[in-house]
Design a protein around this nucleic acid. Sequence first.
DNA 1: TTGACGATAGTCT
DNA 2: GACTATCGTCAAC
Length: 198
Amino acid sequence: MILPSSFFHHSDVVNLARELIGKILVTETEGIRTSGIIVETEAYRGADDRACHAHNYRRTARTETMFKSGGHAYVYLCYGIHPLFNIVTNVEGEPDAVLIRAVQPTDGIEWMRERRPRVKDAKLGSGPGCVTKALGIDRKQNGKLLIPSEGMWLEENTLAPIEFAIEARTRIGVDYAGEDAQRLWRFVMAGNPCVSKP
DNA sequence: TTGACGATAGTCT
DNA sequence: GACTATCGTCAAC
């Protein structure tokens, strides 16, 4: 079952980040279909979160995408090398987003191996830059809706539901955000080997 | 117009 | 475990 855009219109981005654990992210680019179970996410909230690019509703050319309504993709370049994939949430005008930090590969593993040579299967999607590379996501997808006709969407995991616990942890690489760096806004599927290292 | 700096990953020691 | 590749973004000049 495909998740509709309305799923991402909830105002509580933190709760949504937790809900997304276990969902399936699917991409279909250049005729290649790849997908993975989301095992790690982070919440970023524009209103009052210094770790967020759009904190305090800061509006720039880059953050404009985060002001869209929930269900859009926000893809930006980090360290000049890695595209990172986020899902915009909340209603138009509230710049909230969920960063997808890790996935467990399901469909199209052979393509992911080709995109990421010399990498073990469990590590194919283990990190925010790895996720985009394994699934073939880049900055061209920025601002697009997460629907099949755009080549990216999310699904409920109804075919192979799995039991899992969710752990809340602090976010990675946001030390500059002061007290906001202490927020437990990272969620991981407990014990899953595909979760990113630190 | 310029320069400092990242929501990192891969390689080398 | 440390080192660096690499460039868009943004604020200050």
